[in-house]
Amino acid sequence: MDKYDVKTAHKALYAPSSKDFSVVDVPELQYLAIDGHGDPNTSPEYTEALETLYPVAYSLKFESKKALGRDFVVGPLEGLWRADDMTAFTRREKDTWDWTMLINQPEWITVDMVERAVANVKAKKGVPGAERVRLLTLNEGTTVQILHVGSYDDEAPTLHRLHHEYMPAHRLAFNGDHHEIYLSDPRRTAPAKLKTVLRQPVRPL
């Protein structure tokens, strides 16, 4: 049985250079998604979101393998981040951030399957907020991305360079939410060695 792995199927999207920004075209992809607000370091809502997404993702994996004979690797945690003022990211004003946490899903996963997985997780684990999980389709199109190695709190200089140097120099404007892909497990990885893809959808000015 072949096992789908989004990091292998879309290698260019999950293994960018850490030295230079690159422009990639991101195809339409779907995700488990849950929304929230506030500082991810202190918000109970953020902790609850992660405690909900992973059980639903693994429930879907098991159903897909059993019912469809199609297995997949549960993808890395991803996040869409937004704020009324984009400088809130470079200033790290985390209390003002809105977010949507994501886990990629193969194209054959359906809304009905997600609803069954949510019901299964609620029944077995009693996870609060499971009903907030939904299947989200993203079509980000042209994006600029780079691999950040280091603490999440050290992203600001790279984002400043993207927003205030690279994008103006290439006559690009924002065209969607700031997108991060967490390739490392922060529970097992030293902050200085964390690997995070920083991605920004753009459009020509």
Rank of each mutant, 00 (worst) to 15 (best):
K65Y: 10
A83N: 10
S151P: 01
D5V: 14
I181N: 08
P191I: 06
R199I: 11
A156E: 00
T143N: 05
L172I: 00
G38K: 11
K193A: 15
H164Y: 07
S59W: 06
S22T: 15
W81Q: 03
A123R: 09
L77Y: 04
N41E: 09
Y46A: 08
V121P: 09
Q145K: 02
P40R: 02
E63S: 15
L183P: 04
D112K: 02
N139C: 11
D35N: 15
V197F: 00
R134P: 02
H163D: 05
A173W: 10
S22Q: 13
K94M: 09
T52M: 02
R116S: 03
D84T: 14
E93T: 14
P106T: 12
R132Y: 08
R132G: 05
M1L: 15
A12E: 15
L102A: 10
P204H: 07
G38I: 09
V127R: 13
E51Q: 09
Q105F: 02
L68I: 04
M86L: 11
Q145E: 01
K122L: 01
D2M: 14
T42V: 05
E140A: 08
K122W: 07
E78D: 07
E115K: 13
L136I: 02
H179V: 07
A15K: 04
R116H: 02
H163Y: 08
F21I: 08
V118I: 13
S184L: 03
D35K: 13
